[in-house]
Design a protein around this nucleic acid. Structure first.
Lengths: 226, 226
DNA sequence: GGACTGCAAACTGTTGACAGTCAGGCTGTA
DNA sequence: TACAGCCTGACTGTCAACAGTTTGCAGTCC
C-alpha cells in the first residue's frame, strides 16, 4: 500500500558524497594513507568541491579521514595498537549491549536473533565470504538494537564500518569460526543467562581481535621486509 | 624550555568556528532546539559561511547538531530516554576504562589521580560549582587516559561535552556527592582492586544519572504545565 | 472572524573564482 | 656528479554570488 502523497525526499549532495566516499573506504577502494583530492572526487560525482569538503568533514569526525592543514584529507592509516583499541571498545560496547538486551528485550526480539543466526549458517555453508561478514555484522547489530539504547547502536555502526575497512584492507575473509561460537552466544541469550552471554561475547570479540591482529602482524612483517 | 623553532601552526577557520560553536552549546548560550543561522554566525566571527557550515557538519556527526534539509542546523534537543542512554554508555565506557587502568597503569599514574582528587576536594570546599564540575570531569578523564586506549579517551571526551551541556541546560550544579564517592573509587584504584573499582564506578555514574534525571523530570513537569 | 492565497524577506544549498601553499622537476653552479 | 635554489602545475582554504526554498505577513474571500 503506497501512499500517493508520502513526503518527498531529496538526499543532499553532502549525504550522497559521504555515502560514496564511505563505501569506497569500506570496500578498500580508497586505501589507508591515500589522499582524497577534492577536485577529482567532485568532478567524478559531477558536483562542486563544497559538498565534498563537507562530506569529508563528517568522515573526519568519525575518524575515518584525517585532515592535514593545506594538504587535504587522507584515509586514516591504522596501526596495530589502534586495532586493539578498537576491539577493546567493541568488546565493551557489545558486552554491555548483550546484558541490556537480556534484561530488556522481549521474547520476540530474541527469537528474531535465531533467524539472523540462520542466515550466518547459510552464508557459511555457501562459502560466500562477503555475505558471511555482512550476516555476522547484522547479527551483532541486532543484539545492540535489542539493548534499546540508540546510543549503543550508533556507536556499533561506527565501529562496524571501521572493522569492515580493516577486514577488507587486511584481506581477512573469515573472522572467527562464527557458526559455532555464535551458536553458544545464541543459547545463552535464549536462556537469558546474562553472565554466560557476556562471557561468550567477550570470547567472540577477543577471538576476532586475535585473528585480525595475526593477519596484521603477518602483513606488517612482510611489508617492512619488502 | 621553549623551542624557538617549534613548528608553526595555523588553526583553520573551521576548527576555530567549531570550538566557538561547541563552547556556546556547552555553556548553554545556544539552547537545545535553537536554530543556527549560518550567515549570522559567519558575520559575527568575521568569516564566510563555508567554514561555518563545515564546522556545523563536524558537530552534526557528533550528534550535537542536527541538520534539517533546507532548514539548516539546530541544536539537538535531548529527551529523558536519550539522557539515560548516554549515561548507560558512559557507564560502560568508564567501567571498562577503570578495569583497563588497573590492569595497565603504573603506580605513578595512579598516584597522579590522587592529585586530581585533591583538586575536586578543594573545589568542593571553595564551593565554586563550575570549577568543581571541571575537576570531576578531569578526574574521570584521567582514569580513561590511564586505560591507555585512545579510543576510550576520545569517546569520553565526546560524552563529557554532552554531559556538560545537559548539566548546564538543566542547571544541575552538583552531580553526586563526589568527594566521598570518588574517594572510595580512588581507594579501590590504589589497591588495584578491579572488582571493587568497577562497582564504585558503576555506582558513581548511576547516581549521577539518577540525579540528572530527577532534575530533568522536575524541569519537564513544570514546563509541560506552563 | 477565520481560513486560505499570494508575496516578500530571509536563509540554505551549491557553485565558480581567487589567493596562497605545497611538491616535484629543472637549471645552473661548484 | 651533487646540491642549492628557482619555477611551475596542482591543490587547498576561503570567499562572494546565485538559484531555489522556506517562513512570516498582509490581503482577500467566504
Amino acid at each position: 500500500m503506497q501512499d500517493s502523497f508520502e513526503a518527498l525526499t531529496t538526499v543532499s549532495l553532502v549525504t550522497q558524497a559521504k555515502d560514496r566516499i564511505l563505501h569506497a573506504i569500506t570496500i578498500g577502494e580508497l586505501l589507508p594513507g591515500q589522499r582524497l583530492v577534492e577536485g577529482e572526487i567532485a568532478g567524478r560525482l559531477g558536483i562542486s568541491r563544497g559538498p565534498v569538503r563537507e562530506a569529508a568533514r563528517l568522515l573526519e569526525q568519525r575518524g575515518l579521514l584525517i585532515s592535514l592543514a593545506r594538504r587535504g584529507f587522507f584515509v586514516r592509516k591504522f596501526q596495530g595498537k589502534e586495532i586493539e583499541d578498537l576491539y577493546e571498545l567493541r568488546e565493551c560496547i557489545e558486552v554491555a549491549a548483550v546484558r541490556a538486551a537480556i534484561e530488556r528485550a522481549d521474547d520476540a526480539g530474541l527469537l528474531a536473533l535465531r533467524k539472523q543466526h540462520g542466515r550466518i549458517v547459510a552464508s557459511a555453508q555457501r562459502g560466500r565470504e562477503p555475505e558471511l561478514i555482512e550476516a555476522i555484522v547484522a547479527f551483532h547489530r541486532s543484539i545492540c538494537a535489542l539493548s534499546g539504547n540508540g546510543r549503543l547502536i550508533r556507536l556499533f555502526d561506527e565501529i562496524a564500518i571501521e572493522v569492515r575497512q580493516i577486514l577488507s584492507v587486511l584481506g581477512v575473509a573469515d573472522p572467527g569460526r562464527p557458526v559455532e561460537v555464535q551458536a553458544l552466544l545464541l543459547e545463552a541469550l535464549a536462556a537469558r543467562d546474562s553472565k554466560r552471554a557476556a562471557r561468550e561475547m567477550t570470547r567472540i570479540v577477543r577471538q576476532a581481535r586475535d585473528e585480525v591482529m595475526e593477519h596484521y602482524r603477518k602483513r606488517h612483517s612482510t611489508e617492512s621486509a619488502a
